[in-house]
Amino acid sequence: MRHRSVADLMTSNAVSVQRGTAFKEIVRLLDEYGITAVPVIDAGDRPVGVVSEADLLRSRPPGSRASTAEALMSSPAVIAHPEWSAVKAARVMEGHRIKRLPVVDDSGRLVGVISRSDLLKLFLRGDRAIQEEILEDVLTRTLALSPSAVTVGVDDGRVTLSGTVPRQSLIPITVRLCETVDGVVDVTARLACKRDDAPGGLARSGGSHV
């Protein structure tokens, strides 16, 4: 299974500003491009900080002298790399309570920006594409199950699995693998098993919700 990476989802040629960019120019850029933050780069195109709408609003008390990007920015910049998974980028955003990450190459130069809205594009993936990946990659290639053993239904990203698997222990594994497929919102397993190899004994159906 190949999951879409930051490189697949990010906005390339991202809007950026220099350390000396003025307050009003930053406001103009945010409004013009419909964004909520902009990376601040040095002479080598390396992000040194980020100016957000919140930074701009904090700078406006009477007597404030924060008039350039360097004075306004939150620093150091929290960055992402193109090869990161979308999940890793989302966790970094959540951990730092930010909405956008500058994306840098191996030399630290800015190559794009990824935002929460970019990550949400994963969930616009069509049901047919999700179904095909689960059938071909998860069930057939990874778990070596017969294509006729499990029926996969997908409705707006919600996956329903029905059928029979060889062992009870495969049910939670199948669910977890399906949950990792890009675009999946929820997984429900209505699966029986031919042999109960789980501690405790009785065969049962499994289910999961995310």
Rank of each mutant, 00 (worst) to 15 (best):
H3D: 08
H3Y: 11
H3T: 14
R4V: 04
S5E: 05
S5L: 11
V6F: 04
V6A: 07
A7V: 03
D8M: 00
L9H: 03
S12C: 02
Q18H: 07
G20Y: 05
I26E: 02
D31P: 00
D31Y: 01
Y33D: 05
Y33K: 13
G34L: 04
G34C: 02
T36Q: 08
A37F: 07
V40P: 09
I41M: 09
A43N: 13
G44E: 15
V48S: 04
G49C: 03
G49S: 06
V50Q: 08
E53N: 06
P61L: 06
S64W: 02
A66E: 13
E70T: 02
M73S: 05
S75R: 14
P76Y: 09
H81F: 13
P82G: 10
P82N: 01
E83Y: 13
S85D: 13
A89C: 10
A90T: 04
A90G: 12
M93V: 12
E94D: 12
H96Q: 07
D105T: 01
S107G: 09
R109C: 10
S115P: 06
R116W: 09
L124F: 11
L124W: 11
D127H: 13
R128W: 11
I134N: 02
I134Y: 03
L135R: 15
L135G: 07
D137W: 11
V138W: 11
V138P: 12
T140N: 14
R141C: 07
L143Y: 10
A144N: 09
L145V: 06
V150D: 04
G153V: 12
D156V: 07
R158H: 15
R158W: 03
V159W: 12
V159P: 11
I171L: 10
T174I: 15
V175C: 15
T180N: 11
T180M: 14
D182A: 08
G183E: 10
G183P: 13
V185L: 15
A189F: 11
R190H: 14
C193P: 00
D196Q: 03
D197E: 08
P199L: 07
V210F: 10
